[in-house]
Computed example of a mutant assay.
Amino acid sequence: MSTTDSGTPRRWTHVLAVALAACLLIGVGVSVGLLLSHESTPGTDSAEAGFARDMSEHHAQAVQLSMIAYSRATSSDVRTLASDIALTQQAQIGIMQEWLKAWHLNPTGDKPVMSWMPDGQMSVESGNRMPGMATLEEIDKLRSATGQQVDIQFCQLMLRHHLGGIHMVDGLLAKASDPRVIELAKGMKSAQTGEVQALEMLLKSMNAPTG
């Protein structure tokens, strides 16, 4: 089996490519469906609106972390993964913000983060952070890291970030009724599950713990 420059089997790149392709195709379909649909739209207190608002913020941090890694990581595998995450999640932010505009809703709500989830705010972490989100100190530590520590810290932070995002998607799927939102959420989960596998394999190749 061929390997990349870090010695990581290329199997993870195939898993990631399939997941990203599926997610992008779903995203296009959701965007078109949004423009063509005349069905009733979610209200401001709906799970769909809460998800669009909170996941946009959650995604924004993933883009931030990924751009740090893309510019400073030592491994081409990590840089490629970081680029894919940044591009995909920025595109999804655009889709979710367009939903809110089409629904005539504010991009931010007046309810606490995660209040739309089935378990409410029970999964909110210290500092009012959504599940898996890094602290400011962790982001600063990533920025100041050098060498392979950039790769390791990014993979560890993004692994936790994705697991938190998947938890949010599961909460949305338990409550949502809008087929467009459900379709995109399922695409997110598929892509991030593939990326979780890739991150775990990268950490293993660097002999680094997953947390």
Rank of each mutant, 00 (worst) to 15 (best):
A102P: 03
K111I: 04
S40R: 13
Q121C: 08
T135W: 07
Q89Y: 04
G94K: 06
W99Y: 11
G164K: 00
D151V: 00
Q61T: 14
G127Q: 14
D77H: 01
I85K: 10
G164R: 00
N128A: 09
C155T: 00
M168Q: 07
K101M: 15
E57L: 10
A49S: 13
P42T: 13
G109N: 08
H59R: 05
D54G: 03
G171Q: 12
L81E: 06
H167G: 06
S83E: 13
L159T: 13
E137N: 06
R72F: 07
Y70M: 07
W99G: 11
M67T: 10
S40E: 14
L136S: 11
V113G: 13
M67W: 08
M67E: 12
K141Q: 12
F51G: 09
L163D: 07
I139W: 02
V113S: 15
G165K: 04
G109A: 08
Q148V: 07
G132M: 05
T80R: 12
T80C: 06
A145M: 14
H167Q: 15
T146E: 07
N106R: 15
G120P: 02
Q149G: 02
T80Y: 12
G94R: 11
A52Y: 06
R79V: 03
M122S: 14
G171C: 15
V169P: 03
M117N: 03
M67R: 12
S76T: 06
I152T: 00
G147K: 07
D54C: 05
D151G: 00
E125F: 04
D45Y: 06
D170Y: 07
F154D: 00
C155H: 00
M67I: 09
H104S: 13
R79A: 12
S115L: 02
R160T: 14
K111T: 11
A49R: 10
A52M: 13
F154N: 11
Q156H: 01
M114P: 02
A102D: 09
H162C: 13
M168T: 07
R53Q: 09
V150K: 00
R143F: 05
A82M: 12
I68N: 10
T44M: 13
H161E: 08
E57G: 10
Q90A: 13
L157F: 11
L105F: 01
A91V: 04
Q149K: 12
D77W: 01
H167V: 06
E138A: 03
D54F: 02
S56A: 15
P118A: 07
V169F: 05
R160A: 15
M133N: 05
A69E: 05
G94A: 09
G109S: 10
Q97E: 10
E48R: 10
V169R: 04
W99I: 09
